[in-house]
Amino acid sequence: MGVLYLVRHGQAPMHAYSSEPAAPDAPGLTDLGFAQARHTGLELARQVPEFTAAVSGDLPRQRATLDGVLAAFGEVHPAGLPASAVDPGWDEYVIPALPGGPSPDLYDTPAGYQQVLDAALLRWTAGAADSVESYAEYVARTGAAADRAVELAGSGQTVLVVSSAGTITALVARLWGVPAESWPALARAMVNASITKLIVGRRGITVVSTNEHGHLAATDVGLATFR
């Protein structure tokens, strides 16, 4: 039996979600995002003594989170640090074209933006060609990345993967049989730097827990965010 720990990236600056390329020296995370990654690394160190492999997607927010998690984990278990690798298959989806197009005040109200995004995702999961890859292509890409991680998580192996809310919950949704049109509801509830634990065995993948964030939401920590 092997174990996969899937960690959502920490809070990222707004440029991370823009269609415009970020400056080369732009940080992958906000200051809060770096703090979230550190706390998650310490929490994982409390749960396991070592990782046999560590992978992230290729997005700056994902790579920065993996670095932060491993740095904190290594403070507790320096002998338990693996070499890290990048697998672009774990990248998040590219946001589909938003109904009505972007507007200057689109991001002013998170609830309003979420409503517009949900409408775009519903069209996309229904087959609209509103992104650089179709929803079917996204599922195939991320599913192949999950298969590669499962291969790393052989008997007695413990693997760390850092990805994004959409990609992590898309995998969970498929394992649970959640319809594609309902999957975004899972992604909306995922906390930055939260932990999802999967067991890999002879019968496939079993979801043990999702979106664990008590280490971030504790009153003496107060680091839990959704965006």
Rank of each mutant, 00 (worst) to 15 (best):
V132I: 13
T65L: 12
A53D: 01
D58T: 04
P82D: 02
L42E: 09
A126H: 10
G74R: 04
A71S: 07
G33Y: 01
L44M: 02
V159T: 11
E50Q: 08
E137D: 13
G89F: 04
V150A: 13
A129Q: 15
G41V: 04
A120R: 00
Y138L: 15
A79N: 03
L42R: 08
L29F: 05
T30R: 06
R63T: 09
G57K: 02
L98F: 06
A136W: 01
V55H: 01
D118G: 14
A83K: 11
E50K: 12
T142M: 03
L59C: 12
D118P: 14
G101V: 03
A136P: 12
A72D: 05
Y113Q: 10
V94C: 06
G89K: 04
T125Y: 14
P99V: 03
S56V: 09
A128R: 02
E137H: 11
G80A: 07
V86Q: 02
L32E: 02
L29E: 12
A37Y: 13
L121I: 07
V139L: 08
A136G: 15
A153Y: 02
S134P: 05
Q47F: 13
A54N: 03
T52R: 11
F73K: 04
A64N: 15
D91R: 14
A153L: 10
R148M: 12
L160P: 07
E151R: 14
L29V: 05
G127R: 03
A111C: 11
L152A: 06
Y135V: 13
A111K: 09
S155H: 00
Y107F: 15
A83W: 14
S56R: 06
A165Y: 08
A71E: 15
V94N: 06
L117M: 07
G89Y: 07
P104E: 15
E151S: 01
A136V: 11
G57D: 00
A128G: 12
